[in-house]
Structure formats: C-alpha cells, structure tokens
Amino acid sequence: MSRAQCPRCMRPQTHCLCDLIPQLDSQTRILLLQHPSEVNHALNTARLAALGLTHAELRVGEVFEDLHGLLNLPGYQARLLFPGEGAQLLQSGAVTDDKLLLVVPDGTWRKARKLLHLNPLLAQLPRVTLPEGAVSRYRLRKAPGPGALSTVEAIVQALEIVEAPRSYAALLRPFEALIEGQIEAMGADTYQRNHSTQS
C-alpha cells in the first residue's frame, strides 16, 4: 500500500514541504526543462524551484515541440544556464535592454546534454555560467566536480547575481528540509558511513 502523497510538492503527506515553499517574485523568468527520469526522484529540486518562484515554468520531456514559442517571449532575452565553450560568466545586469529568460536543463549532466542534443534550439542559445567555487548543500549525492550544484541551488545563485542585492535564500528552505528528512530516514550511522565528509 503506497503512502498518501501531496499533489503539490509530490512528497508523502507526512513529509509535505508546502509550508516551507515561498512565493517569490522575480524580474527574471525561469524555464526549467526537466528530463523525465527526474520526475519521480525523491530529491526533485527543480519542482521546488518552480513552486517557489511565481515566474518559473517547469516542462518535462526529452523533445519540446513548442520550444520556439517558449524561448521567444516579448521583452525577454533567453540564455541557457549551462557550462561549455563560449559560456559567459553570469553577472549583475547581464541583460540590459530586455529582461532575462533563464533556461535551466534539469537532469544528470549526461541527461542534460541529451536534452541539448535533442533540442537544437537549446544548443544555439547563448550560454551563461555561474562563478566557480560554489559549495553545494546537497549532502546526499557526491558532486561530479567542484562547483556542481543542485538545480534549485544553481537557480538561487543565478537570481542573486542577476537581481542583486535581492536574496532568494528562502527558496532553499524546503531543499534543506528535504535533505534533513532523507538523512533522518536513512539513520545517522548510514549517513556518516556513506555520505559524511567529516573524518
């Protein structure tokens, strides 16, 4: 018998995060393109970001037939938040004439690259990237490299750069609670043995 699930945050009712999810406004629009393999992941941080930002939209799929319309919003310049050749460091005032539409692929690095491959319009977008040296709070998954962040962490950092001095830290509250809940569920010993970086 499966546990009752919250239809909004998709967590078990006993661990619903909705009370922690803020409703934050932003000038920047966020378009999250989520690989289907992430939808039922226990730590679906893209969903948390989409729920917490009034100007965020979450789409799930591998090929997005309506991508042209999604990327060409009047008054917005689309940028792909993804490292790679030619990626510009994201900075305050990155887009001057129009507002910013930040396109964020969500999935493992391999799945995110697949989304770019299957959607050539994405690959053609100008790329922006975050400054190096960020430390993830995602204590349950080994980062593939330095500066690797969860989707919600990357969005918070990007918004805090583009829309400085405004803080979007409230968006991390449900994320932190999610991590703490997972650690609690696995037990302190298991966490220390498999995930803790402390010696």
Rank of each mutant, 00 (worst) to 15 (best):
H55V: 14
H55D: 11
H55T: 15
A56N: 10
E57S: 11
E57K: 10
L58V: 10
R59P: 03
R59S: 02
V60S: 04
V60D: 00
G61F: 11
E62L: 05
V63L: 02
F64S: 08
F64R: 12
E65P: 00
E65M: 02
D66R: 04
L67Y: 01
L70W: 12
L71A: 07
L71P: 01
N72Y: 06
N72L: 04
G75W: 06
Y76R: 01
Y76P: 01
Q77T: 14
R79F: 07
R79E: 03
L80V: 09
L81C: 04
F82W: 14
F82D: 09
F82C: 14
F82R: 09
P83D: 12
E85W: 06
E85A: 14
G86S: 10
A87C: 05
L89T: 08
L89Q: 13
L90S: 07
L90T: 07
Q91C: 14
Q91S: 15
Q91A: 14
G93D: 05
G93E: 09
V95H: 00
V95D: 00
D97F: 01
D98F: 06
D98K: 09
D98G: 06
D98I: 05
K99L: 11
L100T: 11
L101F: 00
L101M: 02
L102R: 14
L102T: 15
V103C: 04
V103L: 03
P105V: 08
P105E: 04
G107A: 11
T108D: 06
W109T: 06
R110W: 05
K111C: 12
K111V: 15
A112W: 11
K114T: 10
K114C: 12
K114G: 10
H117P: 01
H117S: 15
L118D: 09
N119D: 07
N119R: 02
L121T: 06
L122M: 09
Q124N: 12
P126V: 11
P126L: 10
R127H: 11
R127K: 15
